[in-house]
């Protein structure tokens, strides 16, 4: 019943795309609480979104932000 780390990384990624089921959420939470490697991987996989957003460069005249 315990999810493997490989399955957990897949759930973390899918959790960004769809609503996970109740059981999936519980299993994910339990696994992450016990597994530092997956916690780190989970943070890093989700960090990629902010990283991807940064790929658009602004020039110096960004009036919108002033």
């Amino acid at each position: 019943m315990m999810r493997s780390c490989k399955e957990v990384t897949r759930l973390v990624s899918q959790g960004e795309e769809r609503d996970l089921g109740f059981l999936e959420r519980v299993e994910l939470r339990m696994h992450l609480a016990a597994c530092r490697g997956c916690r780190n991987a989970s943070d890093q996989l989700r960090f990629l979104r902010r990283a991807a957003r940064s790929l658009q460069e602004e020039d110096e005249h960004t009036a919108g932000r002033a």
Binding site: S4, C5, R36, G37, A41, Q44, S54, L55
Partner: peptide, 30 residues
């Protein structure tokens, strides 16, 4: 992953990823 799907080499926490993002050090690598 090993045969049971556990990390062979568990990921370590990254050192200040937000800082690297703000300083633009991440862009070229990404």
């Amino acid at each position: 992953f090993d045969r049971r799907g556990h990390w062979v080499d568990p990921p370590q926490a990254w050192e200040n990823p937000e800082g690297a993002l703000e300083q633009g050090r991440l862009r070229a690598v990404l």
